[in-house]
């Protein structure tokens, strides 16, 4: 039986890294949103900018995911 440990390790490392990165960035986006929605804090525009930037980064990852799914793009 041949087990490709290096490929397995790569899947594990990439999956862990990407998942944590996406969720953390998305959480920062949500935090920005929550600041933007908080009343009278004065930091609403900054919060909105933070949210927009983070969600844009996540959207880019999603776009790359779709690129990986659709073989016509390769």
């Amino acid at each position: 039986m041949h087990v490709d440990w290096s490929a397995l390790g790569k899947v594990a490392a990439v999956s862990l890294g990407v998942t944590v990165a996406v969720v953390v960035v998305f959480t920062f986006g949500v935090l920005g949103l929550s600041r933007a929605e908080a009343d009278g804090s004065g930091s609403a525009p900054a919060g909105r900018a933070q949210a927009a930037l983070c969600f844009l980064a996540c959207a880019a990852v999603v776009a790359y995911g779709i690129y990986l799914i659709v073989p016509q793009f390769h």
Binding site: A12, L16, T19, V23, V24, F26, T27
Partner: peptide, 14 residues
């Protein structure tokens, strides 16, 4: 494991 770490951080940060 990936979901566990990500969930923990998401709750911690938010």
């Amino acid at each position: 494991v990936a979901a566990l770490v990500a969930t923990y951080l998401a709750y911690k940060l938010s």
